[in-house]
Amino acid sequence: MGRGFLTYTTAVILQAVANGYLYGFDIIDITGVPGGTVYPALRRLEDEGYLTSEWEEPSIAQSEPRPPRKYYELTREGRELLAEAVKRYRLLEQTQPKKERATKPSRA
C-alpha cells in the first residue's frame, strides 16, 4: 500500500500513538474511532513498517491482574508518515492532547 492510502482515520490513529496512547483501547477512547476500524488499521500500519508492537511482560499483567496488553510504537517511517499527514490534514495536530505520563510501564 502506498502513502496515497493514508486516510484521515489512519492519520488520527498514527497521531494517537505518537501522542502516547500506546495500546488499542487507549487509542479507541481518545480518537473515538470504533475498534473494528482501529485494530485492522494498527495491524496494517505494523505490516507496512510504520509501527512496531510488543506484548507487555506477562508478569506485569498478572500483578494487576489483567490480560497482557499489546503496545504499539512509531518507527522512523511512521514518524515521517505522520509528518506528511499533518501537512495534509492541518487540523490533525490539535485533535488529541499529549499524554502526560511516560506511558509504557517499565519493561523488566
Binding site: 495500546y23 485494530y39 490480560p67 497482557p68 496488553r69 499489546k70
Partner: peptide, 9 residues
C-alpha cells in the same frame, strides 16, 4: 488476547 485486553479494560 488483544481483544480480551480491550474488552476487560
Amino acid at each position: 488476547q488483544e481483544w480480551e485486553a480491550e474488552l476487560r479494560h
